[in-house]
């Protein structure tokens, strides 16, 4: 006759008290529900041109200005480079002579066209990246707009000149002291003006 084998060493019954865990979870859940806000709103910072004291002519300042004509055309102006501290001037001049018009003493300019807003600002970003490589310590750019430019284009321009999009590769910059850093930041201080 077959006998059922009895398990001689049954596992002990264990009881798990999860009352406190449930307590914490529900409390935390209600707390978060009460204080949170679902918001997809954010901000972009900008500033306006401030009047100040007269400039001392002997002091040369970095001047980068972008004039947005409409959502398909813009012009970039870079002021004279004399007496400015920069990284690898030779590379910068090579870049500017290839892409811009002008000279070291009088400054450079370039007209940028795009078939739509996105392409326009992609091209503007490519055009200023070379300048950022030479001036990693400079953070200001002036953006001037004509009256017909839409506010959405204004926002795109601020975004495009502040930093590179997450989808793009970060730039490797060499600072004035020789250290290298990878960054997406271009010119975070945006000064708005009218053309």
């Amino acid at each position: 006759m077959l006998r059922k084998k009895k398990n001689k060493h049954p596992l002990p019954e264990v009881e798990l008290n999860i009352t406190s865990l449930m307590d914490i979870l529900t409390t935390l859940l209600f707390f978060i529900l009460m204080v949170m806000t679902f918001s997809n709103l954010s901000i972009l910072k900008g500033t306006s041109q401030k009047s100040g004291t007269e400039m001392d002519d002997k002091k040369k300042l970095f001047a980068l200005k972008i004039e947005i004509e409409n959502d398909k055309k813009a012009e970039i102006f870079l002021g004279p480079l004399t007496e400015l501290k920069m990284v690898n001037e030779r590379d910068l001049l090579r870049f500017l002579n290839n892409q811009y018009q002008g000279s070291r003493d009088s400054g450079f300019s370039k007209v940028v066209y795009g078939k739509d807003t996105k392409q326009l600002f992609d091209r503007i970003q490519d055009a200023v990246k070379g300048i950022k490589h030479a001036f990693p310590h400079e953070n200001k750019v002036v953006i001037a707009y004509t009256d017909k430019v839409e506010y959405q284009t204004v926002i795109y321009s601020i975004q495009a000149l502040k930093q590179l999009a997450e989808a793009k590769e970060a730039m490797e910059l060499t600072t004035l002291v020789g250290t290298k850093e990878k960054t997406r930041v271009l010119f975070p201080e945006i000064i708005l003006a009218e053309k």
Partner: peptide, 29 residues
């Protein structure tokens, strides 16, 4: 988003001469 800069500039100019030269532009992400 469709407001022309020609209208916005009055606001920015007025704010700047009143001492409010820094702006936070609210956007949707």
């Amino acid at each position: 988003h469709k407001l022309p800069f020609g209208t916005l500039k009055h606001l920015l100019h007025t704010a700047a001469i009143s001492g409010f030269a820094d702006y936070q532009f609210v956007v949707e992400t």
